[in-house]
Computed example of a mutant assay.
Amino acid sequence: MWVANTKAECISLRCQFGCHLERLGTVGCLCPPGLHLAANNKTCEDVDECRDVDVCPPRRTCKNTFGSYVCVCQDGFVMGTVQGSVECRDKDECLTGSHKCSRHAHCLNTDGSYICRCLEDHFGNGHTCWPRRASQSKAVMYYNYKLSKRTKPMHHSP
């Protein structure tokens, strides 16, 4: 008769996933791994495994999923084979052309990123480079550049 009473108690609890017999002989709701019992003691809520530090290996970022988590490559890295094992390796933005350097700049790959440097006959931050003219000062060139942006329509590339 005890088994029948336990089953009836379990049904009356209306647990989301099922129930189990607790230590003192009472019945309580049960949650699958990756979930925990909500405050109402009937439904289950997701556990955010990404709150824990160092859940993922180096160069990977934790993304929480319902009941679990995945480790994905950080920005600037791609999944690939390194010495026979699958790891996140540096993405060479200079090689793939996914950089945002000026066409008047050199792209220099770094671990997880890249640097843009204007060519010797140009100046700027590497993303925008202006021609360097010996007879003009930088201030005059900057003024002329700003003036040209006002008078010419902006062309957006797709």
Rank of each mutant, 00 (worst) to 15 (best):
V70Q: 10
N64A: 09
H99T: 08
E49T: 00
C71I: 08
C101V: 01
T65H: 00
V55R: 07
F66H: 03
D54E: 15
C88K: 12
R60T: 14
H99A: 10
K91P: 06
E120H: 07
V82R: 14
S113A: 09
G112P: 14
V82W: 11
N64S: 06
C94A: 04
V47I: 14
V78F: 01
G97H: 08
C118S: 10
E120V: 11
H104M: 00
S102H: 11
V72H: 04
L119M: 10
C62L: 11
G97P: 11
L119Q: 09
Q74N: 15
E87S: 13
G84A: 08
C62G: 02
Y114E: 01
L119W: 07
E49D: 03
K91A: 05
T81D: 06
R59P: 00
F66Y: 07
V86K: 11
F77T: 03
R60E: 15
S85H: 15
S85D: 15
C101Q: 13
C62F: 13
N64Q: 10
V53N: 05
E87N: 05
C88T: 12
V82M: 14
G80S: 15
H104E: 02
N125E: 13
T65L: 04
H106F: 15
Q74A: 14
T65R: 09
Y69R: 06
C56W: 06
G67T: 06
H106C: 01
K91L: 13
N109A: 03
N125K: 07
T110F: 12
G126W: 00
C56Y: 11
C116V: 03
K91R: 10
C73M: 01
R60Q: 08
C73E: 01
L119D: 08
L95H: 05
D90V: 03
T81S: 11
H122W: 07
K91E: 09
T110P: 04
C71H: 02
E93H: 02
S85E: 15
R103P: 00
C88A: 15
L119G: 01
D90H: 04
P57N: 04
N109G: 02
F77G: 03
K91Q: 11
V70C: 04
H104N: 08
Y69H: 07
R89E: 12
C101G: 03
H122F: 15
D92P: 07
A105D: 11
G84L: 03
K91C: 07
E120T: 14
V55Q: 04
G84F: 03
F77D: 01
G67F: 05
R51Y: 05
Y69N: 07
T96P: 13
T61K: 08
R60I: 01
G124D: 12
V55S: 12
R117Q: 08
E93T: 02
Q74H: 10
D92S: 09
G67S: 10
T110Y: 02
D48N: 07
H122L: 04
D121C: 12
R103G: 13
C73N: 09
L95T: 11
F66I: 02
V55E: 01
C50L: 01
S85V: 15
S98M: 04
G80D: 07
D90Y: 00
G124E: 12
Q74F: 07
T81G: 00
C101I: 09
P57T: 06
G126E: 06
V82Q: 13
R89S: 12
M79V: 14
N109D: 13
Q74V: 03
C71M: 15
S98Y: 12
R89N: 06
